[in-house]
Write a protein that binds this DNA or RNA. Structure first.
Lengths: 124, 124
DNA sequence: TTCTTGTATCGAAGAATGTCAACATAGACG
DNA sequence: CGTCTATGTTGACATTCTTCGATACAAGAA
């Protein structure tokens, strides 16, 4: 997902060209996954871990939520392509998929040639 | 909103340090505003406009939605700090607030010293 | 003033989401 | 085999969200 290139041949442009309908739906799913404080904290805890991996057993006790709820949120982050999981023995480890956050960062970065720095330039 | 600095003294770190609870809630509201395909397209249409401004009368007919619905989505984007509006005569013009998208882009950009570039680097 | 157009707000219906308790599954250990 | 622990899944409920029609507000025109 999010792999399809935009009309400019590079990336699905967000700030430089009107987003197409299907790309908007795909992108919205990723942002929706980030639109919850619990999931944001989960992602942050996973991404900021030095080794790149966090055991679920370390994530669950950090919240005042039930274990199924944490598992549900991790599933949504995984479905959004933001994280991935791997089982090693008894425990399951989650890690960040930096490709997705990189892509989002690129989407939200406006190019240097964008003339948005002077919005009041009404000298048409 | 989003103005409070993180524990590192710079920005509320997302990928480098565990997000604090209140910051997660603040951030989640912004991402939630982006988590809808209609709002993403609205933001894209506003941001990509050369003059930096778009009249609501140009936005509404681009969707198969009622005028109150578009107005509602614009309100959510505005409350999230992503856009701003100004009335000039009969029409209302919306423009991007690049500070917010810049902040989000910075949040999702991992610093160069982050050792996450080799997730499979099992060479201990 | 009245009329018309553009935009925002209100109230409600249906859909989607967050959360939990209960249960299922996977693996380790006897 | 059985048992225990760690995660994931299911079903249900309360909350929130998306959308609409109806209405209110703002501003120009007659």
């Amino acid at each position: 997902m999010l792999g399809q290139d935009g009309p400019d041949g590079c990336c699905p442009a967000l700030l430089t060209a009107p987003l197409e309908t299907d790309q908007a739906e795909t992108l919205a799913k990723v942002f929706k996954a980030l639109g919850d404080p619990v999931r944001l904290r989960l992602l942050s805890m996973i991404a900021s871990r030095a080794g790149g991996e966090v055991c679920v057993c370390d994530l669950t006790p950090a919240f005042d939520l039930s274990q199924p709820t944490i598992s549900h949120h991790l599933k949504l982050l995984k479905q959004a392509g933001l994280i991935d999981s791997e089982r090693r023995g008894t425990w399951v480890y989650y890690r960040l998929l930096p490709e997705m956050t990189d892509r989002l960062a690129a989407l939200l970065t406006r190019p240097a040639e964008a003339p948005l720095t002077e919005p009041a330039g009404a000298a048409s």
